[in-house]
Write a protein that binds this DNA or RNA. Structure first.
Lengths: 131, 131
DNA sequence: ATTGTGTTATAATAGGTATATAACACACGT
DNA sequence: ACGTGTGTTATATACCTATTATAACACAAT
């Protein structure tokens, strides 16, 4: 299974599921139109409750990352994720600001920070599935 | 006061306080050794409970961003924040991965993403206090 | 003594997270 | 038609977090 949970993490389980699905989509492990396990199946596989999986699926559907068909079940949105726009860019800035402020306080150089971003991008462009 | 809260945000109040203090430190609005308002004063100023402020101060002290003196009160750590190291770098990667995955799924280009980071860095290096 | 520090303790409320059970409407395979 | 597997909805419960409210303590300064 493509989901690896950390039960001792502060990040909620449903959030970890959402993140890992997005990472899978970014790396190409999960392709547009590809079917995901049913809520019951995934819950059983990773040993959690059906509703926790459902919450993750629901929220990803609300964000238009997933499509849920009565027949076809849960699939990666055939059109891919919604494209970046001004709203997304503002959300992104608000998310990054505290993280960058923290790094800046610790005297991490801008180049070092950008290198970390570059490494993460490389993993996604490369399509490697470990990490 | 330098703290602007969003009470309708999903981010907890004490977390918003922590973030804004770090942003203030990054921008130079808050200098090493500078004194912060007392827990009671800040709580009164922004209209929240003393314990919520205390929680933010405590956690920033645990992270070595603040020093708390019996006499001098709460001050920005005179040595500045702890310097970046491997642990911080790994934490940073774990924080950035889901954010970058999301942006990547939305077909934001690497250059556009790095530009957003650059803008944020610029605000901190420039020492502008609005944002 | 009074005031103002940070700190600790206790309690109460509200909300989020995760679980357990159960049921529903729908579609598929036989 | 029947049983199975979809997503979905509804309750109920337990736990933890976030926030507030009061109160008290040890210490330092005026």
């Amino acid at each position: 299974m493509f989901i690896q949970l950390k039960f001792d993490s502060e990040v909620p389980i449903y959030e970890q599921i959402k993140q890992q699905i997005k990472i899978g989509m970014a790396k190409g492990t999960l392709q547009p139109g590809e079917r995901l396990p049913s809520v019951r199946q995934l819950a059983k596989d990773i040993g959690i409750n059906l509703h926790t999986v459902n919450k993750a699926y629901q929220q990803l559907r609300d964000e238009n990352f997933l499509l849920i068909h009565r027949q076809r079940g849960v699939v990666i949105h055939p059109d891919g994720a919604p494209k970046t726009d001004e709203i997304h860019k503002e959300t992104l800035k608000a998310e990054l600001a505290p993280i960058i402020a923290d790094a800046f306080c610790r005297e991490m150089s801008e180049n070092d920070f950008l290198s970390v971003c570059y490494e993460i991008f490389k993993e996604m462009k490369g399509g490697s599935s470990d990490g």
